[in-house]
Amino acid sequence: MGNFSLDPGQQARCAEVRDLARQHLAPLAEKGEQGRVNRPLVAELGRLGLLDRLFTSGALDLCLMRESLAQVSTEAETALALQGLGAHPVHAHGTEAQRARWLPEVRAGRAVAAFALSEPGAGSDAAALELRATRQGRGAVSISGSAAGRDRSRRDPHPPTPQKWLLSGEKTWISNAPEADFYTVFARTGDPGTRAGGVTAFLVPADRPGLTGAPLDMLSPHPIGTLTFDDVPVTADDVLGEPGAGFRVAMNTLNLFRPSVGAFAVGMARAALDATLAHTARREAFGGPLKDLQTVAHQVADMALRVESARLMVYAAASAYDEGADGVPRRAAMAKLLATETAQHVIDTAVQLHGARALRRGHLLEHLYREVRAPRIYEGASEVQRAIIARELYKEETR
């Protein structure tokens, strides 16, 4: 892996993304309704080609996009990230038919995707899912379009009926719910005792009968809701990956996106640092600018140190993912943990140095203060990241 100094091309792309965010995305973000999917914003992300890059570039480029967007517009950043999180399982594990149906729509910003993993009793412990997929009939699983399926059809004039299930249960804390056009849903197809081994991933269009949802009023301004599955029908054609291998689909997706959550946090922290540098340079107090007070200058220096440390760890984790290096789960967990905890500290310090003005509704730091809290919880809380890091370290020790 390199030294994580961005080359001129990467620097130019980051600057381009920030410019696009200022000129095209931030104005649309400001017109959106808090807690609702901003479809004009998603469509503009598609028109600008940013959604397409979710599927044509690696983890480091994803981090650079998210960091750059977050410095200008957290709403635009989150809209892009949620499209990637919901649609990446289709890109990486979907059938040719699934990808052909949904990915062009996601790339163009016409279809909104969502990643439906968490449940009322299965948040941090994702393997404890209770959403049930009850098998209907005894037909064998069919893999649409596969050579094996075509050969079997030639041999047998009465091929088996495709496997069918009914989904029953609830999902909650789902970003983009209940307004998404399709959901990557993780359900239990095996015995609960099998935990991770009994989970299957399904692609569930929002118009399936029995699927309903409701929005949740959250501190974080992006859309989050619940989903209720009342015997929602799915078949083998809706399976992402293999039956019983859904937990692997979920973890592979999170290993890619956890470093980029860290990049989102770094972008927010950088925006807070930039605002603090400007404020302390011009704000007069005690006979001079705030920056001349040693206690202020040292806090700003500490903010910059923490932001740079988190940025480097995020880039290291993303590069490890792109290179297929060892220890990706550990590196991804470290990056998310350090960056989100760092951003919380940096933004809190920025608020303190700005004083009461930063608490006014509509101030940049008031917005960031609300935004920064959620990433320490979603896609695995900080405590979960520590557990992953420890588990991976001891696993490496016993090899």
Rank of each mutant, 00 (worst) to 15 (best):
L256M: 12
G193V: 12
S309T: 02
L364Q: 02
G288S: 05
M218P: 00
R282S: 05
A29E: 00
C63T: 07
R248V: 14
L103H: 08
A297R: 13
Y183R: 02
A317N: 15
D292N: 05
H158R: 14
L69I: 04
L80P: 00
F55Q: 06
G380T: 12
E105G: 13
I224S: 08
R39L: 14
H354E: 12
R150Y: 14
T95P: 09
T172W: 09
R152K: 10
D238G: 06
S309F: 01
E366N: 11
L254I: 03
A126L: 14
T56E: 12
M251P: 07
H279T: 05
E170Q: 08
T295D: 01
F55Y: 15
E16Q: 12
K291H: 06
A390Q: 14
E379S: 11
Y321W: 02
T398F: 14
V300Q: 01
A285K: 00
K395I: 12
K164C: 06
L359F: 01
T74F: 01
L240K: 02
G213T: 06
G324T: 13
H91P: 08
G32V: 00
I347H: 07
R373N: 05
Q11H: 04
T349L: 11
L364Y: 06
L50V: 10
D238N: 15
C14S: 15
S73F: 01
T349V: 09
V266F: 04
S382I: 05
C63L: 01
R391G: 07
L28W: 03
E33W: 00
L203K: 03
K164A: 12
A236E: 08
T295R: 11
C14W: 13
S175Y: 12
D7N: 10
A114N: 02
D230K: 09
M268T: 02
L54S: 15
N255D: 09
A92Y: 13
Q299G: 06
H24A: 06
A12D: 08
P40M: 12
D231W: 07
R18G: 00
L103S: 07
A278Y: 10
D326Q: 14
L293P: 07
V314P: 07
E308V: 01
R150Q: 15
A297F: 13
T340G: 01
D52F: 10
P209Y: 05
M313G: 13
A263M: 04
L48E: 13
R376M: 12
D292F: 13
L41C: 05
L338T: 11
A147H: 13
E105K: 15
E75W: 04
L103A: 10
E33L: 00
K31Q: 00
L62M: 10
T280H: 01
A87Q: 03
A127M: 10
N176V: 03
A180E: 14
L290E: 10
Q352L: 14
P192N: 06
A332Y: 05
P8C: 01
G225R: 10
Q83V: 02
A358N: 12
M303F: 05
V232G: 08
A180S: 15
R107H: 03
E105T: 14
L6V: 02
L353Y: 08
M1C: 12
A76Y: 04
G2N: 15
V234A: 09
T95L: 00
A127V: 13
R270P: 00
P259T: 11
P159N: 11
A148Y: 11
M334R: 11
G46Q: 04
R195P: 01
Y315T: 06
E67H: 01
Q294S: 04
A126H: 15
A325L: 12
L166C: 09
G246M: 02
